[in-house]
Write a protein that binds this DNA or RNA. Structure first.
Length: 275
DNA sequence: ACGAGCGCCTGTCGGC
DNA sequence: TGCCGACAGGCGCTCG
């Protein structure tokens, strides 16, 4: 499921190119094809198709789990939610089964937004800042400091799993990287945020940045058919390793449900002290 | 303020 | 072998 590292990899591919797929910078959009209308959050399909036509790709960005394709007039904002990827390919290629939107460029290539589960959404907006104003800080930016993080932790009395999944707190973390970061910092996922010491907060801050950087370095985490780009799944310590021995102490990894999500942790390394 | 529950989806997997 | 229900999960929403 595309979280920050996976989306960052998409950003890299679209702006730098990859293997047999060229970058799409300076490409001009001849026409767009909306294969599933539900993928479009705004504006209306008619307005979208008319407005996007003729615009040129100027820059590729990312904010949290959102991929930003800055065009000459507007910005195309993509969110994958549970599954999928963006692919640059020749217009002569067969259309992928789960393709929801295509941008056909002037020179024979296209950008395909493939999204098997139809949870992903696309926006075409003049002002992406306004659309994404609810997001918390970028975890890899200089603005995200241990001090600021600690202050935010102190301001809430929430289970750490909930806290870290909240995009208003930090932008870009999802289920995989939250479990991994909590494991690295030896914090139980049900620990209340305002009970952490500054030292624990600082260790968690480091761990969050560590797992995200490692994820990016490995081009993200591949999971079954949902996204098949990266290699980070080979380095996961707890996520989807229920019953396997903890790398540190050998205790079997436990799986519980928090926030309607599978949550994996080492019951020996990550203990719950106080509530 | 917090968190449970639900709906949106579809491929996969276990049970029969 | 094949059918079917359960499950997974990001996010916005309602509700207690």
């Amino acid at each position: 499921m595309p979280e920050l590292p996976e989306v960052e990899f998409f950003r890299h591919c679209l702006s730098q190119g990859r293997d047999n797929s060229p970058p799409i910078l300076r490409e001009n959009i001849r026409e767009a094809e909306l294969l599933w209308k539900g993928a479009l959050a705004a504006p209306s399909p008619d307005e979208f198709l008319a407005r996007v036509q003729g615009q040129t790709v100027e820059r590729i960005g990312r904010r949290g789990k959102y991929l930003l394709i800055h065009l000459s007039e507007d910005t195309l904002v993509l969110h994958f939610r549970m599954s999928g990827e963006v692919v640059v390919e020749a217009q002569t290629e067969p259309v992928a089964k789960h393709c929801r939107l295509m941008l056909n460029f002037d020179d024979g290539i296209r950008l395909a937004f493939n999204n098997p589960r139809k949870f992903g959404r696309v926006w075409l907006v003049a002002d992406p800042e306004a659309l994404l104003a609810h997001l918390g800080p970028e975890p890899l930016s200089d603005a995200f400091t241990p001090e600021r993080f600690y202050t935010t932790l102190q301001g809430c009395h929430r289970q750490m799993k909930y806290f870290l999944l909240d995009q208003k707190i930090i932008a870009g973390l999802g289920n995989i990287y939250v479990d991994e970061a909590l494991y690295l910092s030896k914090i139980h996922p049900q620990t209340k945020s305002d009970t952490l010491s500054f030292e624990q907060a600082e260790l968690l801050w480091k761990s969050i940045r560590q797992v995200l950087r490692d994820g990016i370095e490995n081009q993200g985490t591949s999971f079954d058919w949902m996204y098949k780009g990266g290699n980070y799944q080979h380095f996961l310590k707890v996520y989807q390793r229920t019953g396997e021995p903890c790398a540190i102490c050998g205790t079997p990894i436990k799986r519980i449900t928090i926030a309607q999500r599978g949550t994996h942790y080492c019951p020996s390394c990550q203990t719950l002290s106080e509530k």
